[in-house]
């Protein structure tokens, strides 16, 4: 799957590309509007990551050009601006998602996966990995044939780890993913531990061999 990263901060663009490449995505990195416009004209991408403030113009112009040409590439805006107006403008112009810097790469990866899932045609809502089958449309999880009955948080947690499989996901990223804006009010990650324990127990009851590893108190990793 092809991803175009339009980001003028090269170090950030490179981190994103490196992180995503582990997920069999092919990433192209451009740093200005001019090159970005050329690329989107010639190629189709599964997802475009778009920074709004580019050295030679506003990233929203790229988005506009894309939609004017009736291209249906998924677009996630990554911006330092998080005003409601900025979000609304971006989403009105046809962006699929809006992610504010600084973000966790694991969060970005989960959002990309969601955008791609949404944009693909029917039958693609199934993720099969690590011996688990997740139906993202029905929000069900099976280990082999056995259905695991997960709560909403546990499901979200599993899907998050699954889309970031084989990589360490930090506890901050998990906390932020699970509690949204409410995170940051507590400096307490014990609730992740509790969720994780329940998730593992339920999956193991369904006959799954536990592949979620805690990595030195830094975060967790699902090995596929």
């Amino acid at each position: 799957m092809k991803i175009l990263i339009i980001e003028d901060e090269k170090a950030l663009g490179q981190s994103i590309a490196d992180y995503l490449q582990a997920e069999s995505y092919t990433c192209e990195l451009v740093a200005d509007k001019h090159t970005a416009l050329q690329r989107i004209e010639s190629f189709d991408y599964d997802c475009i990551l778009l920074d709004i403030s580019l050295p030679d113009g506003n990233g929203l112009q790229v988005l506009k050009a894309l939609r004017d040409n009736n291209k249906t590439d998924g677009v996630i805006i990554i911006s330092a601006r998080d005003g409601i107006d900025d979000r609304i403008t971006g989403l009105q112009l046809g962006a699929d998602d809006y992610l504010v810097k600084p973000f966790h790469l694991s969060e970005l990866s989960a959002r990309i996966a969601a955008v791609i899932r949404r944009r693909r045609f029917s039958g693609s809502s199934i993720i099969e990995a690590a011996g688990l089958t997740v139906d993202t449309a029905a929000r069900t999880v099976r280990a082999g044939q056995q259905l695991a009955d997960l709560t909403r948080s546990e499901y979200d947690l599993l899907l998050y780890l699954l889309t970031n499989r084989n990589r360490v996901v930090s506890k901050h990223a998990i906390a932020e993913h699970l509690s949204g804006d409410g995170e940051g009010l507590f400096d307490n990650y014990d609730f992740i531990y509790a969720h994780m324990k329940n998730l593992k127990k339920k999956l193991m009851q369904a006959g799954w061999a536990d592949r979620i590893k805690a990595v030195y108190g830094m975060g967790y990793k699902l090995e596929a």
Partner: peptide, 15 residues
């Protein structure tokens, strides 16, 4: 925010 994003991204890569 941008340097913070770079910092956080590199940390995640370091992980």
């Amino acid at each position: 925010r941008t340097p913070l994003a770079v910092f956080q991204g590199k940390l995640e890569m370091l992980m």
